[in-house]
Each structure stands twice: as C-alpha cells, then as structure tokens.
Design a protein around this nucleic acid. Structure first.
Lengths: 123, 123
DNA sequence: AAACTGTATGGACTGTCTTAGTACACTTAG
DNA sequence: CTAAGTGTACTAAGACAGTCCATACAGTTT
C-alpha cells in the first residue's frame, strides 16, 4: 500500500501522510473506505504506531479522513476537506506557475497538463 | 528589500532564499543586477553573514545567481537556471493541480489563474 | 596597504524525529 | 459479560539533523 524510503530527507510520518493523501486524491482510496488501523499499518511498515498516528492526525486536521474511537479511520468526502488546505494549494499553485512562466514554459503547455490530469485521475 | 519573520517555522536562510527568488521571478531584480554583499545584507537584516551566504549558495545551485570572489553576486539570465529546478517545479505543479481538481476546483479556473499571472508578472 | 568581496571550517545550540512504554475509553465479536 | 481490537493521550529517552554564529582564509578592487 505504501513504501518508505529511509534515504529520503522527509521524516517517515510525512512520507506516510503524503502517500495516503496521494492515494485519496488519485482515487485509489474511495470515499468512506476504511483505512488500516494504526497498529496494523505500523506492523506492516515495521515502525512505531505513534508515527502512524501522527500521520493520521495530520490528515484528519486537513479533513482528508476522520477517526472514530473504537471503530477505525475512514476516508472523508472531498467536500469535507479544510478550506485552509485549498487556499494553501492555490498559493503554491500560483508561485509554481509564476516561476515556470519565468523559466520560459508556455502557459498553454501548463493548461494542457491540467487537462491531462483531469483525464488520468478521473476514475 | 526583504523582511524576516521569526515566528515563521521556515528557517531564516530559506526565507531569504525564497524571497530573493521571488524578486528575480517577478522581475523586481533584473538580470545581471548586482546583489548586496553577504555582509551588507546580513547587516541590514541583523543576522550572520553565513546565513546570507547559505541562501546565495542555494540560489547559485539553482542557477538563479552567480558569485565571483572579490567582486560580488549577480542575477543570472533565466536561460541559465538548472533544468532539475524546472523538472522539480513541474512535479509540484502536477501534484498541486491534481489535488485542487480533486477538491472540486475547475480546470478552467486554474488556467485562468495562469493567464492572470502572465499579465501581472510581465513588466 | 587597506577595504571590500565571496568562501570555508568548526562548534555550540536547538529542535525534531522516532521509539518505547503505559494507560484510558470506546466498539465489536464471541 | 468477556475479550480483542480500535483510536487517543502522555511521558521519557535517545539519536540525529539542522540552524546559526564566530572565526579565519582567499581573492579583487581601490
């Protein structure tokens, strides 16, 4: 489900967090789907449950999942994602696009990329 | 020219690096223009010259400026920027756009943002 | 020679990451 | 009801990386 890279500069909990978020965004994890328990995923990845919980905690703060004590953790609906997350994404989008334009990448080429993403991620 | 925020989680040298890069990308710093010396900028911001040099060093690795011992640091031409930087930007662009699409932002709206950036940054 | 420039090195300090252990409250399965 | 599984909270500890500063070195300009 996920793979860790200990040579990566990013801490483990960030790799788990970003990896799970990616699975949600790409549709690999459906809305409402149950995630592995913190202990199960920790056992699979051979790390401490606290590290997994930290990743879940961060994703819950972003609104990508919700946890119910005693039941488990589940993927939220995309309407429940925190608005601050979207604003943050828009800022990085603008900055990234501005720099790419400065480097000579055509705006049309960037728009074409977005169209490709729509086609590829939609499932 | 730049302002630091000590409450920001980002380290100082990153704030300087990103701030200068932004000045270059927006055209506030013209190509070939001479930057303040590491000591001058350190004195202005009331920090250690090494911290400034670290920011300059990073920007030089990206290709946004070049330094000549004894003379100073200057803004490179945008053609000299490292290709790895552009590839990195494209990756973050795709990931950011994909997540925004998942959150319900229309692709047309993102393209419109790019057009606005082209008009605003060009000077 | 003096004053400027970028550069290199070493070290103190701080914070972060991760693990480990323990404990609690809740839900489900038997 | 009991037991197992779930999320959650807290502390302690160590290891590690990062950040920043002080200092010294090397080059260029005046």
């Amino acid at each position: 489900m996920l793979s860790l890279d200990y040579r990566d500069a990013r801490p483990i909990y960030e790799q788990v967090r970003d990896g799970l978020r990616r699975l949600v965004v790409t549709g690999a994890l459906a809305q409402g789907e149950k995630l592995p328990s913190v202990r199960a995923m920790a056992s699979t990845l051979a790390i401490n449950p606290n590290t997994i919980q930290r990743a879940y905690e961060a994703l819950e703060a972003e609104g990508y999942l919700y946890s119910v004590p005693g039941k488990g953790s589940f993927v939220s609906e995309h309407t429940g994602v925190d608005r601050g997350r979207q604003e943050h994404l828009l800022r990085t989008f603008d900055q990234t696009a501005a720099e790419l334009l400065y480097l000579g990448v055509a705006g049309d080429a960037l728009c074409a990329r977005i169209v490709n993403l729509k086609g590829g991620a939609a499932q």
